[in-house]
C-alpha cells in the first residue's frame, strides 16, 4: 500500500513538472508582446523596456525557465500586472471557493447518484428504473450554466430562498451561498453517477461471488449493499475522477453564473484584463488541482479494492 501510494505520488510530481513546463512555454510562444499586453498600446518604448527588465523578459529562455520553476517551487506567483497585488494571496483567497464548490457538488452527486443507481439496477426494467434513467438523461442533457441560471431565477429571485450572488462571509453565509451552485453541479454529477452505478452494479450482480453470497443466505439488501456495491463502485470512482476534472472547468461557468469569487472567476478576469502572470498562476493551480484529484482517486481505488494495493506496483 505504501509503495503503491509512493509510486502514484512520484507520478503526480512528474505530471506537475510537465504541466509547469507546458504552461511556461505556452505563455511565451503565445503571439503578442506581454509587455504591450500589460501596459497597453499607449505605453512608450521606455516604459515597455523597463517593464521587460522588471519581469525578466529579456533574459535567455533557459534562465527564465529556471527562474520560473524556482518561483513555482516557492509558490511565488509574482504580482498582477494590472493591480500590482500578490497573485499568491489572490489565488489563496479564491481557491477555497472553488474547492468547496467542487467538494460539495461531489457530495451532492454521490448522495443522490449512488442510491439512484442502486434503485435503478435493483428494479431493472420496472418503472423505478425508467424514471431514474429518464431523470439522469435529463440531468446529463442540461448545460450547467443553464441549469444554474434556472435555479438562480427560481430559488433566488422568485422564492428568495438563497442569495443571488457572491461567496458570502462567515460560515453560515458561505454555506448559504454554496447551496445553489453546489446543487447545480451536483445534479449533473448525480445524473452521471447514477448511470455509471446502475450499469456497473448490474454487471457485478452477475458475478459468481454474488451467487455465493446468496447461497450463504444473504437477503437481497445484503447482497446489493455489502457484496455488490463496493465492487461496483470501482469504475464509479474512475468516473468521479474524470467528472471532477470536467467539473473543475465547469466550475468556471458556474462561478460566473453565481458570481462566486473562485478560481474560475480569477482566471477569467485575468484573461479579460490580459493579466498574464495571473493567468499563468491560475493555470498552474488548476493543473495542480487536477493532479491532486487524480492522486486522491488512486488512493481511493486502493482503499476500495484490496487487489490494487498489491498488484499495481
Amino acid at each position: 500500500m505504501r509503495r503503491y501510494i509512493t509510486n502514484r505520488a512520484v507520478d503526480a510530481l512528474l505530471t506537475v513538472w510537465l504541466v509547469l513546463t507546458l504552461v511556461f512555454f505556452a505563455m511565451r510562444v503565445l503571439p503578442g508582446d506581454p509587455a504591450v499586453a500589460a501596459l497597453g498600446d499607449q505605453a512608450s518604448s521606455d516604459q515597455l523596456e523597463a517593464f521587460r527588465a522588471l519581469m525578466g523578459l529579456n533574459d535567455p529562455l533557459p534562465l527564465q525557465y529556471v527562474h520560473f520553476l524556482w518561483d513555482m517551487l516557492r509558490l511565488d506567483f509574482g504580482t498582477s500586472f494590472r493591480t500590482g497585488d500578490r497573485i499568491g494571496a489572490l489565488l489563496a483567497g479564491a481557491l477555497p471557493y472553488t474547492l468547496q464548490l467542487a467538494f460539495a457538488a461531489m457530495l451532492v452527486g454521490a448522495a443522490i447518484g449512488i442510491p439512484a443507481g442502486v434503485v435503478a439496477a435493483t428494479n431493472r426494467g420496472r418503472s423505478a428504473d425508467y424514471i431514474a434513467r429518464l431523470l439522469s438523461l435529463l440531468g446529463l442533457c442540461i448545460p450547467e450554466f443553464y441549469l444554474g441560471a434556472l435555479l438562480l431565477i427560481v430559488f433566488a429571485l422568485r422564492l428568495d430562498l438563497f442569495p443571488i450572488m457572491g461567496g458570502g462571509a462567515g460560515f453560515l453565509d458561505r454555506l448559504n451561498h454554496l447551496v445553489l451552485p453546489a446543487v447545480t453541479l451536483g445534479i449533473v454529477m448525480a445524473a452521471f453517477t447514477a448511470r455509471l452505478t446502475r450499469s456497473s452494479l448490474l454487471e457485478v450482480l452477475r458475478r459468481d461471488y454474488i451467487r455465493t453470497a446468496r447461497a450463504r443466505g444473504a437477503p437481497e439488501r445484503v447482497v446489493v449493499w455489502r457484496h455488490a456495491l463496493r465492487n461496483a463502485l470501482i469504475p464509479v470512482v474512475t468516473g468521479f475522477g474524470i467528472y471532477i476534472l470536467t467539473m473543475l472547468s465547469g466550475s468556471i461557468s458556474i462561478e460566473l453564473v453565481f458570481a462566486r469569487p473562485g478560481l474560475g472567476t480569477v482566471l477569467v478576469s485575468g484573461i479579460l484584463a490580459r493579466d498574464y502572470p495571473v493567468v499563468q498562476a491560475g493555470l498552474v493551480v488548476f493543473a495542480l488541482c487536477v493532479v491532486v484529484v487524480n492522486l486522491t482517486m488512486d488512493v481511493l481505488y486502493a482503499l476500495i479494492d484490496p487487489r490494487i494495493r498489491v498488484e499495481a506496483l
Binding site: Y209, R214, G217, A218, R226, R230, D305, P306
Partner: peptide, 24 residues
Amino acid sequence: MTSVRGRDIGMVFQEPMTSLNPVL
C-alpha cells in the same frame, strides 16, 4: 429460501477462483 441457504443447506461451487468476493 434465505433462511434455508447457508444454514440448512451449504453449497460449494465449481469455480473457486471467482466464487469469493474480492473486496471482503
